[in-house]
Computed example of a mutant assay.
Amino acid sequence: MDTKLAARKHLELSKEKLVKLSHNIHANPEIAYEEEKTSLWLSEFLDSQGFKVEQGIAGLPTAFKATFGSGPLNIGICAELDALPGVGHACGHNIIATSGVGAGIAASKVADDLGITITVLGTPAEEYLKSGGKIVMLENGAFDDLHAALMNHPMSLDIEEMAILAASFFEVRYKGKSAHASGAPEKGINAADAMTIAQTAIGLNRPTMRSTDRVHGIITKGGDAHNIIPELVTADYAVRAKTVDDLNIVYEKTMRAFEAGALATGAELTIDGGSKPFAHMEHDHEMASLYRLNMESLGRSFATPEQAWGIPVSTDMGNVSLAIPSIHPGISIDTKGAANHQPAFADACATASADRAVYDGALGMAWTAIDIASNKNLRERLLKKI
């Protein structure tokens, strides 16, 4: 039997269970590093399909590794686990997780015939921006034996190569000195003024930034009362750029703006985070092209590169791509105009179009793994990576 047909028939046996699992995960959102149910459900399902499952890998309780086969070419599939605080699965990780598990199950049917090992990695905390789960897993060796890594991501368009920026995320904290705002303002150090100066400096810096640079944030604490000089002011900020090298430049520029706030007011500045940035994505063009051809055979149409660059995002999958050949395409669902991280997008992730994305994404990635294994030159290129 043709290997792709065999993989498809094997996936069909699990289709209803995968959709049900996607809906269960969607109905039980768990934020970063707390994905206990999600991790357990996915691990148990893979175990029932003959995978060897290791839980709590890389020092992360909710991370897991599930393997099938013993071939020399080890193809990894990432299953992201976490939801967003407050809006649940508004980035569609329930689809990513079940699609990744489905891809592993479909490819496992022909793994021995093709001489490959299929590894499904449960990757927590992609939304934990100070240090994404895949970054920790990379540091602790979870990707060391893989030759390639695949995943896809739900959004409003099918995209061959998503625009993925390098990014650094951090908390800014100004510590001043409280005082009566009218009776004794001269005795205070205004932490809110320090933040205002920094934000003004960032705004004035924008004309000297690239069109692909991003600096954005929110105030998480602005003071306690209008008649008290604010002693503690905090904010969460993100800096993004097209590449890691570009990120370093705009990050330093942004740090100088925050330092200016401290210098001008006398407040103490503390930066928490930023030491483990998300990298830009270096798509493996050959593997991405194979994925696109497989998805087009399932009736999907792809966005233009210009459309793709109109939706720049960041993910710790970028860090994986700098370590091993990787792909991170977008898979479309009917969002009815909603964008990722909006409540309406979360609603769209448990609909008929989302269920189709679970199946199409699983089959498309499984077929891509088959193409990788069957392409002599590509296979040899990947085997040389380790």
Score class of each variant (00 low, 15 high):
Gln199Met: 13
Gly222Ala: 04
Val244Arg: 14
Ile271Lys: 04
Met281Pro: 05
Tyr291Phe: 14
Ser297Gln: 11
Tyr237Phe: 15
Asn294Leu: 07
Gly274Asn: 03
Ala260His: 00
Ser178Gln: 10
Tyr237Gln: 08
Ala238Phe: 09
Thr196Cys: 10
Ala225Trp: 06
Gly217Asp: 00
Pro277Ala: 08
Ser301Val: 15
Asp213Gly: 02
Asn248His: 13
Leu204Val: 02
Leu263Tyr: 14
Arg210Leu: 14
Thr220Gly: 07
Leu293Lys: 15
Ser297Glu: 12
Ala184Gly: 10
Ser275His: 11
Tyr251Lys: 12
Ile189Ser: 06
Asp236Lys: 14
Phe278Met: 13
Ala201Gln: 00
Asp245Ile: 12
Ala238Ser: 13
Glu252Phe: 09
Ser182Cys: 11
Thr234Leu: 10
Leu290Met: 15
Thr196Tyr: 09
Glu186Ile: 07
Ser211Thr: 11
Gly222Asn: 03
Thr265Asp: 01
Gly203Arg: 06
Ala267Cys: 10
Pro207Thr: 05
Thr243Trp: 02
Pro185Tyr: 02
Lys177Ser: 13
Ala264Gly: 11
Ile189Lys: 04
Asn248Leu: 09
Ser275Thr: 13
Phe302Met: 05
Lys242Ala: 15
Ala238Asn: 10
Leu269Ala: 05
Ala264Val: 12
Gly223Cys: 03
Ala181Glu: 05
Arg214Val: 07
Ala167Glu: 06
Ser297Tyr: 08
Thr200Ser: 11
Lys187Ser: 15
Pro185Lys: 02
Lys221Ser: 12
Gly176His: 01
Lys276Trp: 11
Leu263Arg: 14
Lys253Arg: 12
Pro207Gln: 07
Ile249Ala: 12
Met287Thr: 09
Arg292Tyr: 01
Ala184Met: 13
His285Leu: 12
Asn248Lys: 15
Ala181Trp: 02
Ser289Pro: 04
Glu268Trp: 06
Leu293Met: 09
Gly274Val: 05
Asn205Arg: 09
Asn227Gln: 09
Thr208Cys: 08
Ala184Arg: 09
Leu232Ala: 02
Arg300Ser: 10
Gly176Ser: 01
Asp236Cys: 13
Ile271His: 06
Met287Asn: 04
Pro207Ser: 04
Met255Gln: 14
Val172Glu: 04
Phe258Glu: 01
